[in-house]
């Protein structure tokens, strides 16, 4: 089993490393860059929904904050490397404070409050980013175009920068969910009152999970700016970011980590294709409805997503084949 997994990992790494050389730095590569950014974002969301069992409908507040902080600092410093670093640092600081405040407000009571409060707070950021009084900072509804540092000016450099970011995030999350801390998170997801009875301070664990998830989402938002060189209020949008990341995570498979990456790939690719189709056939102008239908169908009929269902099937196959072997001997 292990060598097969290792081979897969090597193959996919080689494929992703070589992709821009084989296919050039055109549409496919820029789609991949977006998939990496949203994949990291979706994986951070899976830490929350899949491993801690709490649903947020406002994860865009982190993604958008990361994007805006990096964009604002970059544009004020004229696109220097120091500006990029400083932008990420400021973004992370805001993200930590924000997650602590939101957690303190909504995680002390039953976690259904959390879904409502995050939705409302997310919307506040959307409104703030587009508001006129903050125009000197955010440029209101016009958005900010940014200059990235010189070493990030080629498409290849951006591609590898994002790929390395994704690799680090994946490695970190993988280690994290298999750590004792991750075990406790899963324990309180499965049976909160039992975890509480065992003496785990649920509020602290949930808050830390939310903080980490928000931090990674913030970094993904910053990376989005590196890819797009542009930021507008759409990074705070409920429909196109907060709910999109929910869709990506559940399509890929809640609680599978890599599912988020797969989901991001599928959704962004579909979006791209549908946008192309809408360009030539006006029938596809309302294609977004496909995502609403997909969302409901997945939640209702495929609650474990693609990866979760595959894993379950494999597990069942292994179980039945083993018992079959045992009964034969």
């Amino acid at each position: 089993m292990r060598p097969v997994r290792l081979a897969w990992l090597l193959l996919s790494t080689l494929f992703l490393m070589g992709f821009p050389f084989v296919f050039g730095s055109g549409g496919g590569t820029s789609l991949l860059e977006q998939i990496f950014v949203f994949g990291a974002f979706a994986m951070s969301y899976d830490l929350l929904i899949g491993y801690t069992g709490i649903v947020s409908f406002g994860h865009a507040m982190f993604f958008g904050t990361g994007a805006y902080a990096v964009a604002i600092v970059l544009s004020k410093t004229g696109g220097s490397t120091v500006g990029l670093l400083l932008g990420f640092l400021i973004a992370m600081t805001i993200s930590i404070l924000l997650s602590l405040v939101v957690a303190f407000l909504s995680l002390r009571v039953r976690h259904t409050y959390f879904a409502m409060v995050t939705l409302a707070v997310g919307q506040v950021f959307f409104v703030l980013a587009g508001s006129q009084p903050l125009r000197p900072l955010t440029n209101a509804n016009d958005g900010i175009s940014v200059l990235t540092p010189v070493w990030l000016n080629s498409n290849l450099a951006v591609y590898y920068f994002i790929l390395i970011f994704l690799a680090i995030v994946t490695l970190f999350l993988h280690r994290f969910i298999h750590s004792p801390f991750g075990e406790v998170l899963r324990a309180l997801r499965e049976n909160e009152s039992r975890a509480k009875a065992l003496g785990y301070r649920i509020f602290h664990y949930k808050t830390l999970a939310f903080l980490l998830s928000g931090l990674i989402a913030t970094l993904a938002g910053g990376m989005y700016v590196v890819v797009e060189s542009f930021v507008s209020t759409s990074v705070y949008d409920i429909g196109s970011v907060s709910l999109q990341v929910v869709l990506m995570t559940i399509v890929g498979g809640v609680g599978t980590l890599y599912g988020g990456l797969i989901g991001a790939g599928i959704i962004l690719w579909l979006q791209n294709e549908l946008a192309n189709l809408a360009g030539s056939y006006p029938v596809f102008n309302h294609a977004e409805i496909a995502f609403g239908v997909l969302y409901v169908l997945v939640v209702r009929f495929l609650p474990n997503g693609i990866l979760g269902t595959l894993k379950g099937r494999k597990g069942r196959w292994r179980w039945t084949s083993q018992t079959f072997k045992k009964s034969q001997t």
Partner: peptide
């Protein structure tokens, strides 16, 4: 609880998109 949240949110998206047609 989580399935309910996700499902009703999905219905909201669907209803808002359907009315646009």
């Amino acid at each position: 609880g989580n399935q309910q949240l996700l499902l009703t949110m999905g219905v909201l998206i669907l209803l808002s998109e359907l009315i646009e047609i």
